[in-house]
């Protein structure tokens, strides 16, 4: 299966129509979710009144923060074992986008927290801390790649770091969970099914799907750019050798 997806030509052909499809569907989902979230659903006084509407950006951003680091780790692992160049291109493309959504999660969380809890930042809160360290993992990954002098070295160093980071994520999560928390418990995915009222759940799910699609589309565009970048570099090198 990996070998099929590892072919850059097939990827370019596939993403040629898939990326625009992702953009279109993602934008529609996000717009619908925002419209529902901002104008249609009733406000929840317990969650701070109108400010809880930021949830329709905050929760999808939190989901993407975790999903993008998982994707980064999987892509790094695939590259490290099978050396499929496309996996490295994917990892390189995912990192900055993951960092942006993680920062978005932190920013919207702070904006939600200030009127509700009376503070921008709560050091006791396990989930805020986890996301903050996830953000640092992304920054470290990008800084390490940027510091390497060749593409191959960047790929190898990045893959090692992403895998070490992924091994540590459960430990980091567990350690920060030891702190007591102001944050409400998980309410979308629980053993008894969603606890949240359906009126909020649907716009939230559609928003999350929309953000995921937008993320996927952006990753594909970045990967296409990177593939062409590498092709140009190869052509330049060949031209220099020939001349």
């Amino acid at each position: 299966m990996w070998s099929y997806f590892a072919n850059p030509h097939k990827f370019l052909r596939l993403s040629d129509w898939l990326a625009p499809a992702f953009y279109t569907a993602g934008t529609l989902c996000i717009l619908w979710g925002l419209w529902q979230g901002l104008w249609v659903v009733p406000k929840d006084e317990y969650q701070g009144g109108d400010i809880m509407r930021v949830m329709f950006v905050h929760v999808p951003a939190a989901w993407l923060a975790m999903a993008s680091y998982s994707a980064l780790a999987v892509a790094s692992f695939v590259w490290f074992i099978w050396r499929h160049e496309l996996a490295d291109i994917a990892a390189k493309s995912i990192a900055p986008l993951g960092a942006v959504w993680t920062a978005l999660c932190l920013a919207t969380g702070s904006i939600w927290g200030k009127p509700t809890w009376g503070t921008w930042w709560q050091w006791d809160d396990a989930r805020m801390m986890s996301v903050l360290f996830l953000f640092f993992l992304f920054l470290g990954y990008m800084a390490l790649r940027a510091a390497m002098d060749t593409r191959q070295k960047a790929a190898r160093a990045g893959a090692i770091l992403a895998m070490v980071g992924a091994l540590n994520v459960p430990l980091i999560k567990f350690s920060v969970d030891l702190f007591t928390s102001l944050h409400q418990d998980a309410s979308v995915i629980t053993m008894e099914g969603p606890k949240m009222a359906a009126v909020y759940l649907w716009p939230l799910m559609i928003s999350a799907i929309g953000h995921s699609l937008l993320f996927g589309g952006l990753v594909m565009t970045r990967m296409r750019t990177e593939i062409r970048d590498r092709r140009i570099a190869r052509l330049r090198a060949a031209a220099l050798e020939g001349g």
């Binding site: 360290f133 640092f136 002098d149 090692i160 540590n168 980091i172 350690s175």
Partner: peptide, 26 residues
């Protein structure tokens, strides 16, 4: 990881910081 990087010290700090978290907390 940064053995061949000049001014690697700053990079080490950024890489290692999240990995220090569990130890610091425990």
């Amino acid at each position: 990881l940064s053995a061949t990087v000049r001014r690697g010290g700053l990079l080490i700090s950024l890489i290692a910081l999240p990995l220090y978290v569990p130890t610091a907390i425990f």
